[in-house]
């Protein structure tokens, strides 16, 4: 009953601190997981390059602030825009030519795009870790009573909620959102309605990558070492988050992100001797959920009609 011992010995203050940390990590995962789920919803493929888009966004931020000395808020905006463009370019170059090809070809192309980005980063920026720029306002510690919290930990959930609300508004209440949902359901008939599905797919990649950029910035502030392989682990975990929430479902991705984020922090906080297994936690959750609910927590059962 170590859990309870740890729990009892823990002061209310540090419990709150862990919760804030967990929520903040969960929000971060959610931001990146949304990109996976949106692309899957429309193209029925896993964009393996998504984690590497996160990595590129970290490098973009480094260059913006540490090399070109652009003010951090301007850098953030530029990074979001360039990362969105990068996502669109990857789709154009690696996925669009394979639109009518079997799904496996697209998947392999996605893995190729992922390797290309990783090795490109290795070649351009070298494998030596760079330090993510320190942004005083966001990385400072705030004390709330006995609780010490990094400003970013409070900032991340707020940004995530705002982004999620904007995203859900776009998807549910705008014409472009309506066409995205239509394309995800039946792209042949969407074409017959006069929808340019290539544009819709580009916009989906732009939105997913922009959210990944925001996630990347928050990731960099929390974990400041930037390497070409940085995107692999968050990419994998956020993919898992999307799957356990029900891939294709935006709210599911957010839910999955929170489950993983909170779960990881709880393991580290309450079972310190298990903290070496924190990465394994995601996979265990994945296996358990797939076993009991293969479509994910919020996923719908799809019956394929012929």
């Amino acid at each position: 009953m170590e859990f309870f011992e740890a729990f009892v010995n823990m002061s209310g203050g540090s419990f709150a601190q862990h919760m804030v940390n967990g929520i903040s990590l969960g929000s971060l995962y959610a931001m990146i997981a949304i990109g996976y789920t949106m692309v899957y919803g429309i193209l029925l493929m896993i964009n393996f390059a998504h984690g590497d888009i996160v990595m590129m966004a970290c490098y973009f931020t480094f260059f913006g602030i540490s090399v070109f000395h652009i003010p951090w808020y301007l850098t953030f905006i530029l990074v979001i825009i360039t990362t969105a463009l990068l996502g669109v370019v990857i789709e154009r170059a690696a996925y669009r030519p394979l639109r009518d090809a079997p799904k496996n070809s697209v998947l392999i192309s996605a893995i190729g795009a992922s390797f290309l980005l990783e090795n490109l980063a290795n070649y351009l920026f070298s494998g030596r870790p760079l330090r993510f720029p320190n942004i005083e306002v966001l990385s400072q510690n705030l004390s709330l009573g006995s609780v010490q919290i990094q400003a970013i930990s409070l900032f991340i959930p707020v940004v995530t909620i705002v982004c999620l609300m904007i995203l859900l508004h776009i998807v549910n209440n705008t014409k472009i959102g309506m066409s995205m949902r239509a394309v995800s359901k039946d792209y042949e008939i969407a074409r017959v309605m006069g929808i340019n599905i290539d544009n819709v797919i580009s916009i989906t990649f732009a939105i997913g990558s922009a959210l990944a950029a925001i996630g990347a910035i928050m990731w960099g502030i929390r974990y400041p070492g930037i390497t070409p392989m940085l995107g692999v682990m968050p990419g994998l975990k956020c993919f898992i988050a999307a799957v356990i929430g029900g891939v294709g479902n935006i709210k599911g991705a957010v839910l999955g992100g929170f489950i993983l984020g909170l779960g990881e922090i709880i393991i580290v906080a309450f079972f310190p001797q298990l903290s070496g297994y924190r990465d394994a936690f995601a996979f265990i959750v994945l296996i358990v959920i797939l076993f009991y609910k293969p479509t994910g927590l919020l996923g719908e059962k799809t019956t394929e009609k012929v």
């Binding site: 014409k175 309506m178 066409s179 949902r181 239509a182 995800s184 359901k185 039946d186 008939i189 969407a190 309605m193 929808i195």
Partner: peptide, 12 residues
């Protein structure tokens, strides 16, 4: 489009 409302189907 089963995931859209009736009204949205008409709009689309």
């Amino acid at each position: 489009f089963s995931n859209l409302t009736v009204w949205e189907n008409l709009k689309i």
